[in-house]
Amino acid sequence: MSRTNLLDRRQVVSCLLAERKDAIVIGGLGASTYDIAAAGDHARNLYLWGAMGGAVMIGLGLALAQPKLPVVVITGDGEMLMGMGSLATVGLQQPKNLTIVVLDNECYGETGGQASHTAGGTDLVGVAKACGIAEANSMTTMAEVGAFKGSLQNVSAGPRFASIKIDGANLERALSSRDGAFIVSRIRGALGFQPI
C-alpha cells in the first residue's frame, strides 16, 4: 500500500456523517471516537473509551434490536483487529442495516504509532469477505467515500464493510462525553425508551 496521498480521517468521517439522518453511530476506542465527536455531538452517538475489540459487537446488538435504523460502526484498524472474530459473527447474522467502517492508518496512533498488522500482510477487506460480508471494499479516495456514504442509509442491503486508508497524523483530540451511562441513556431516550 502506497503511503502517499492518504486521506484525512476527520474529512472522511465528516463526509460519512454529513447526511446521517436517523443513523446510530458507534465510535471505537481511540481516535475514531474523537473523529465522530469532531463531526458534531449527537444524541445517537455511542462513544467508546474502552472495551477494545467490542465496537462491532455493540453495533450488531443495536442493529438487531433496531432493524429499521441504519447502524454505523466507525473504528480503527487496531480495534478491529482485536475483535476480528466479530466479523464472523456478523457474517453469520447478516444484519442488513449494519455498516462497519475501519479507518485504517496501519498503526496504533494513540500509543506512539507502532505498526499494526495491516501495515504487513493482513487484509481486513479480505477477512470481512471471507466471513460472509459480501459488500466489503477498500477505499483510498474521497470520491469513493462520497459515493459510499449514501449506502449507509440503506437498511435492506447490508451488512457492508469498508476499509478507508487514512494518513497516520495524530490530530488534536476532540473529546466526547466519557460518561457511559449518560451516553447509553441518551441513545435510548432518542429511540423512545424510558429509564428503568
Binding site: M57, A63, L64, Q66
Partner: peptide, 23 residues
C-alpha cells in the same frame, strides 16, 4: 435471536448494544 459467538466477550458487547437499542 440465537447468536453464536466466536468468543464470549463478544456477547458482553452485544448485550450492551442490544440494551442501547431497547432489547
Amino acid at each position: 435471536r440465537a447468536i453464536p459467538l466466536t468468543t464470549e466477550e463478544e456477547g458482553v458487547a452485544l448485550l450492551a448494544g442490544a440494551w442501547a437499542g431497547g432489547q
